[in-house]
Amino acid sequence: MPPTESRIRVKRVDSVTQVEFLDRNILDEANIQVIGQEIEQLIQSEPNPRLLISFSGVEHLSSAALGTLIQVNNHVRNRNGQLRLANIDPQIYEVFVITRLNKLFSIHGTADEALKSFTK
């Protein structure tokens, strides 16, 4: 049976929606689908969404997860929103570098730095 329970933790900091993952490994395709759907709901719930995705505690990330992040980025952009990524483990950051997705995403060292980078 596919997992249906939430795979993310969401909190609101000022006008920014901050997302963290409950899983250390974001590999399982069914989980990635759930994560994508949950984040999609957050994007659609407001105009000009300001979304911060923190990878704190995440140890593994698959190419399918990267594909979902690209979709999230597109959907945030379509709604004139802003997306920031933060707290990415150095080994996972290397995955972003190899795939050159470090150029596509706005990546910050810490959640605080990412929060400060949102434009009003």
Binding site: S62, S63, L66, G67, I70, N74, V95, I98, T99, R100, L101, K103, L104
Partner: peptide
């Protein structure tokens, strides 16, 4: 990794 393909879904697994 090419700019025109960067948002496409496939090929990233083999690249890694």
């Amino acid at each position: 990794t090419l700019e025109e393909n960067i948002e496409r879904g496939s090929g990233r697994g083999l690249l890694l």
